[in-house]
Write a protein that binds this DNA or RNA. Structure first.
Lengths: 365, 365
DNA sequence: TTGTAGGCGTTATCAC
DNA sequence: GTGATAACGCCTACAA
């Protein structure tokens, strides 16, 4: 294999715009124009330059152009984790929009630690990103201040913050959790348990718990605190928590999980314990992952328009960067409850019930 | 909310190193040194500068420093997709190593299209990344040439390429698939089906099919081509293909899926069809996802050290960038077959068999 | 349509 | 230990 002699890149003098200009017999500025705005250059000149670029193997230096133009064509994205996470789906839609418009994504993992997020944001600012993408709406005061002081277009994803840093695209976590709990209540369940992931520094989970609690109050459901557990987004943790729950409250009738993998883990454990779903225990998930509709019984869940949220966020942020005015700074992309076998009262007797769906906007919309 | 007046960032004159220098009463060069190499500056000067930085709210401009120093502290990563993909796990380990050493990740999605990968790589080169991370070993000739000509440290992930661009970290896809098929054969299965994802431009899947075929030949198994299907990494597609397979070959005894989600989809469909696993059909997966051990029956699979591969790749690439010599350019991180209930001969009669594991290096190691 | 001058904000280099 | 100077490679602004 060809040995790469100088990893640091020193000593290798890459071709510059001057080299191209010399070969094409024009001024450097003309080369710059020919590459950025081909229409501003005569066809003849353009061809000479194109040929020179190809001959030399010239690759423009975007670092220099960024310094000069004050645009990096880069968006910094803070994402808690890519593992088992719908955050990856948001980011994927977002990144597709960016790429189509010549922007690239600089990635930072915060691991759900606001302090880490702050450090990442500062690093992004140092790199002079043109915009910033934050997952969720829980940030340190300094993060908010940095972003506003530096006037960096910023989009917050997955929530509907009351006081957004700049713009936001998401859905009502409160409303979705409320709707699921209400649905379970209307099916006659009185003791509805809640498995959520950790609420620390995660307003999405806080909102979902709040939505659950609001429904519990409104419908006069069992409000025993031992019906609630916080755990990792992890199948095994869900299995363990289900065993603990059944030990504490063997009479529990329904279980609402704020993540489909948690619901799946609970469902699998129920099967192992001989607890029939939905006959002995109804289970509902959250997120609308592909696996939900394939489980046996199929899983009732809330479909979040993950991909669409990412795309909308990308479009809005780029509009923002382009200086176009934003009609609504906080966009609610809604959610959809998908009722399937895991909460079907009939499925207790006859399995394989087809799922029915209906769409709701978040309350207050 | 505070209005951000100027999205493009113009008109807002950020504080520069000169401003800090003036306030601290030193030269700009001294400020630069104090921030990059605090030890080279007297304690007194350092304090004055630290105070000035805080007072002004100075955030250094890394674009300028990159241009000047010829280091961007950025690695460009090409990842086919973040959805349902172990590629996200590789990247997560990789990114953690980078961050600990001050590097950041620039992300590009190739969607498994080598031409797109090439365009992304060129863009990365234009941005003068210090290193490049590629998923897999299938790249266009031009991509390889660009990277070698420009002497950019490059790591290829997930395969063991014979002719690596620079360095590589992965495992033997061939060896792992061979081992699974062999295991099934030794359990007495004669007709073993294969569900893999698309082999087009994906040498990992090509290698896995090749490993399967090698075992089929070696053990004199049923080599009916209709036992093989290519499909998306998708539970529903797996369900559909299982129905087709059972229609074609109702006598099939075992099914090897080159992805755990495919295996899960097939397992769920088998349950719906009343096909008992493993009694009527043994099923094995690939990847070693968390879900595999939680299914009922638990799923036999191949554990890939996903996270570890990412970490090793990060360490090697940074070593490469630092100019340290690399002992082995292609590192095999091995794999581990995890036998669980879904292929257990005894589980047909008594369920809930604990999984047993053993570790193997790739053949030839 | 093309070219000239100057500067973007930092760091390498060498002198003090 | 500190500072002056000259790049880094391109683009903005203006001129021809």
């Amino acid at each position: 294999m060809a040995k790469i002699s100088d990893p640091a890149g020193r000593g290798i003098k890459r071709a510059g715009i001057r080299d191209v200009a010399r070969l094409a017999g024009v001024a450097p500025m003309t080369v710059s124009r020919a590459l950025s705005f081909p229409d501003l250059v005569s066809a003849e000149t353009r061809e000479k330059i194109t040929a020179a670029v190809a001959a030399i193997g010239y690759i423009p230096n975007r670092v220099a152009s960024s310094l000069s133009s004050n645009h990096t064509m880069t968006i910094g994205a803070v994402i808690p984790t890519l593992r088992n996470s719908i955050a990856a789906d948001f980011a994927e839609g977002f990144s597709r929009v960016l790429r189509a418009r010549g922007y690239h994504l600089l990635l930072g993992n915060s691991e759900f630690v606001p302090g880490d997020e702050e450090a990442i944001v500062v690093e992004f600012l140092a790199r002079r990103v043109d915009g910033i993408y934050l997952t969720g709406a829980t940030h340190t005061e300094r993060t908010r201040k940095f972003l506003r002081d530096n006037a960096v277009p910023t989009v917050e994803i997955a929530s509907l913050p009351e006081d957004p840093i700049d713009i936001a695209v998401g859905f009502s976590n409160f409303g979705a959790a409320y709707a699921v709990t209400k649905m379970l209540a209307e099916q006659g369940h009185q003791s509805i348990a809640l498995f959520s992931t950790f609420t620390k520094d995660n307003e999405r989970q806080v909102e979902r718990q709040a939505g659950y609690r609001a429904a519990v109050r409104e419908f006069g459901l069992d409000d025993d605190p031992s019906l609630i557990a916080e755990l990792e987004m992890d199948l095994k943790a869900a299995a363990q928590q289900l065993r603990l729950l059944l030990a504490r409250r063997p009479d529990v009738e329904a279980l609402f999980c704020t993540g489909d993998f948690i619901a799946a883990g609970a469902l699998f454990e129920a099967q192992r314990l001989g607890v029939s779903v939905p006959r002995d225990l109804a289970i509902a998930g959250f997120e609308g992952l592909e696996i939900a509709e394939n489980l046996n019984p199929s899983l009732t869940t809330v479909r979040i328009p993950r991909y669409e949220i990412g795309i909308k966020a990308g479009e809005m942020l780029l509009d923002r960067i382009a200086g176009r005015s934003i009609e609504t700074p906080v966009v609610d992309m809604g959610f959809e409850i998908i009722e399937r076998e895991s909460t079907s009262r009939e499925a207790a007797n006859r399995p394989a019930v087809a799922g029915t769906t209906f769409r709701r906007r978040s309350p207050g919309e």
